[in-house]
Amino acid sequence: MPHRILTANHLRDGGVVFLAADGGWVRSPEAATIAACADDERGLSTIAATAVADQTVVGPYLVDVTVTDGRPVPVRARERIRVSGPTVPADFRADAASA
């Protein structure tokens, strides 16, 4: 089965977040915890349900990734753009604004 990471939008600012290994939500997919089996995915989904109930995140879902040098890269173009922000223009990219 493909590797997957769990993503959502942050409730307060709407920003894209990923579930990290320590159970926290992070902005960078590189720190996301990677599920490699159905058990892992069930675990992530349980954490996600709690985070939704706690008003931390909105709309969590699993994203298929390939893992290169330990880093997850989404398979679909949509998810790659969601990770990196609008492809144009650079000034409006999520990382530029949060820097």
Binding site: N9, L11, G14, G15, V58, G59, R78, R82, P86
Partner: peptide, 20 residues
Amino acid sequence: EDEFKPLRLMNGLYLQLHAY
């Protein structure tokens, strides 16, 4: 969120790919 979503949409507020 299920309760809030129709209320925010009535006020033009979407949740898009990267943000509201």
